[in-house]
Design a protein around this nucleic acid. Sequence first.
DNA 1: ACCGATGATTGACCGCTGGTCGAAAAGGTG
DNA 2: CACCTTTTCGACCAGCGGTCAATCATCGGT
Lengths: 203, 203
Amino acid sequence: MQEQQTKYNLILDSLQKLLENRKLQTISVSEIAQTAGIGKGSIYYYFPSKDAILEALVERNYEKPLTTAKNLSAQTDIPPFTRMAMIFQACRNSSAEYLKSDRESGVGAPEKALLHQKYMNHMISEFKPVLAEIIQQGIDAGEIHFGNPEALAEIVLIVLTVKMDNTIAPSSPEGVEKTIESLVALLEKGTDNPPGSLNFLLS
Amino acid sequence: MQEQQTKYNLILDSLQKLLENRKLQTISVSEIAQTAGIGKGSIYYYFPSKDAILEALVERNYEKPLTTAKNLSAQTDIPPFTRMAMIFQACRNSSAEYLKSDRESGVGAPEKALLHQKYMNHMISEFKPVLAEIIQQGIDAGEIHFGNPEALAEIVLIVLTVKMDNTIAPSSPEGVEKTIESLVALLEKGTDNPPGSLNFLLS
DNA sequence: ACCGATGATTGACCGCTGGTCGAAAAGGTG
DNA sequence: CACCTTTTCGACCAGCGGTCAATCATCGGT
């Protein structure tokens, strides 16, 4: 019918909508069902648990930026640092989507811990190999000097993710920017690149 | 009586014990009460909610390493990098205490998200000013070259905490070590210090 | 056109939870 | 002893995540 999207996605949509101004613990499965306009039992036909709904939502949200990042790793004509910045932008955009609720509404981020932990987990583990590959290419091309590309990718992703999420050590937008600037400076100096060669600052 | 420790601490002890091989969500307040050998109602006399018990437990566990770190910031005779390493050790020891359960028992770290988030939050926000102060002293003494000591402290703490917690992007113990080694290398290079001047590797 | 099978949908239901509350015990002071 | 405050308690409550037998929809086979 007019529903080309499966009920599976309908449930995810409902949870996402509810998550915009409520914390997870206060959202009941019955409520998700009600919002989706279906019976509570149906939810357990598509998902084994409430937790699994959240997990699926996280995965769905990072699908797009992840594939663009993967495509990026093949674009060897673009300089590695530029591609790193592009991945950073892709992440920032997609994370902004689920985080705007925290910033706009007064909810803050009291206990969406599970959500945040899952987002960060997904983010770091999925993007790490892609970013490591790009760094490796940079090393091979002599544009980056560093011993362990995997570890470097992890460090960068950890700091970026934590600061962009802004749940764990929350600070003002300017504070986030300062930290990221310093990360960039550290990165440039640590990989024998001149200041300004890494340009993340487009937000 | 023989109880010199208040009931407040008794409750924290019980939660800590239960947390050693169970995830938080499966531990009920009644169970904590039972373990502590008191009535369930008494728990709500000392704590406003289940969440508050966890919060208090986190704070209690980081009390000791935090004060030693604070004392360390006054010991200006010790070189800054050495003091950084000492703080790192203090953190590692105290975090090891609450994490050993994850590593030893088969529980893994499926959903203690809240616990981990709270630990990391506490850790980073409390240690940051102390570490920043030490870095500032290092800059003043000409031993460290970096623009923004606060941001540098934050970057270091974020990476260390995330990797030591090992919940968000879990990896093998060797993987953790590799990442920390790379962080040290990045730090040394980024602050114009020779390789080996920062020595974290005593675990 | 009818049937049976298979998959999808449902809400009443269950055990249990975090949290409340009035009563009662314990403890101190005169 | 009486009196008051601080502590302790467990029965109780609304509501939770999750289950399940019953129902409904769809459709290929005859």
